[in-house]
Nucleic acid binder design. Structure first.
Lengths: 251, 251
DNA sequence: CATTCAATGTTATATTTTTAACATTGTGCG
DNA sequence: CGCACAATGTTAAAAATATAACATTGAATG
């Protein structure tokens, strides 16, 4: 690698310093050489930059890394969640205003909304909001606030009041732990307020949890099992189906 | 676009939510359909995702925007925005609480934040929030409310009050029109409240607009030019640099 | 000045990606 | 049921990108 080659690489790296991509054609014109020379520069270099479909990118940028780490175990979990959500979607009605909780459990539910009319989705989860924002016919209300990376959701002091002002008629709640005596819990304390507010306001309350959550107790308690009208699960809910308790739906 | 198509897109978007790329082949296998179907899904969608050399990426991720393209005028716009944002980033200081406006103009700014410490970003734009949520060292406050697909941002009645409670010291505002007499305007009325609130509260107000906006008048007026401390533009701002007026910075 | 050789350019060929066309499947409906 | 039509699959062709081979340039050197 010669001095001119190094100088070209530096120039290109400079162009890409703030992120972004540079087409090979433009890189070549920027340096006043042929595309082949740029290719050879990249090949001979330390690998700081690479070509991705004809575009020059910084190789260490994680944005360009393939996400395909969806191994079998994760996939089967996804299948379970999808099945649970298909059951959950059976409770939907046209014109509903839904509360959709954070986490990955309820994400497949978003995909099933398109078959209903005039839906409004209320959520405090960024991933849910992103998914709903793609649906043309569904109104989206995002409860904002400070972002919590751990749950990819938002929290704020007045969330309780804001949720109270919305006419939520169906709340889909997820949880990290469900225990017959110790109730329903999650990992993060910032999730407690929105969950409780939604449970308090909604006409119908549905808990959606896969088997792995049943029998668990997590740090942040947020509800008793009887606070729910319906529990949708594939787990072994050997609860006394007694008076006042939720209706258990197996998926 | 049918329900299954929407469901596949949502699924793929979920896979890409944390950034990264997904090869068309893997996207097809993930959804259990052919590559052609994925291509058609993406064509029919609103452009949230695009293919880049056979890889699926989130289109609004500024990391995938070309930094330089000599041919297509569309990309020269992207380059201009990047340059504007590089200038804008020069005003940042450690510990800042920033307001970042919606649209694509300020998106490249997010990637320039990493070099500063203890930043907080306040925004009402979904694309800005997504970009910031990926930065480990930056706090994110999203101003929630009803989602407006036209600007991919949120609006609510109490946005004014919420912004007032935050200690914003630098507001980066974008606009669709800047006119010497008729002031600064945008397309959508729902953007007016958050913009005005941010202008009212911030210690320093920076307007970032490319040349194409200068001289234009858009439906929703939201500020006079003197309401800003700094205007960053590549356009022909032949304003009297008089007393009280903003400082014009050319990029 | 001719020779050498690295650097670069040019052209050809292979591979991959994109687009287009047509075949097949499946779903809703009279 | 059987038709119509949308959704998807399959295949072929076109365009773009990657690799390889060979040609040209130009500076260094004896």
């Amino acid at each position: 690698m010669n001095a001119r080659s190094v100088s070209r690489l530096a120039r290109l790296q400079q162009a890409l310093a703030g992120g972004g991509t540079l087409h090979l054609r433009d890189a070549a014109r920027l340096c006043g050489v042929s595309e082949m020379t740029i290719r050879r520069d990249i090949d001979a270099s330390d690998g700081a930059m690479t070509l991705l479909g004809g575009r020059l990118v910084m190789a260490d940028n994680p944005q360009f890394a393939p996400v395909y780490d969806l191994d079998r175990q994760q996939y089967s979990h996804a299948m379970t969640k999808r099945r649970l959500c298909e059951r959950a979607a059976g409770f939907l009605a046209d014109g509903d205003t839904l509360f959709v909780d954070c986490g990955t459990t309820l994400l497949p539910l978003v995909n099933l909304l398109a078959s209903h009319e005039r839906l409004t989705v209320v959520t405090y989860a960024l991933n849910v909001a992103n998914a709903v924002s793609l649906l043309p016919g569904v109104r989206l209300v995002l409860l904002g606030g400070l972002f919590h990376a751990s749950s990819r959701s938002f929290g704020s002091d007045d969330m309780n009041a804001v949720i109270g002002r919305l006419g939520i008629n169906r709340a889909f709640i997820s949880a990290a732990g469900v225990h017959a005596q110790r109730g329903v819990s999650c990992f993060h304390f910032h999730e407690v307020a929105p969950k409780q507010a939604a449970i308090a306001c909604a006409e119908q309350r549905l808990l959606v949890v896969d088997e792995s959550k049943v029998g668990q107790i997590r740090p942040a308690y947020f509800a008793q099992l009887d606070d729910f009208d319906v529990v949708i699960t594939d787990g072994d809910m050997t609860l006394p189906q007694a008076d006042g308790g939720p209706r258990i739906v197996a998926a």
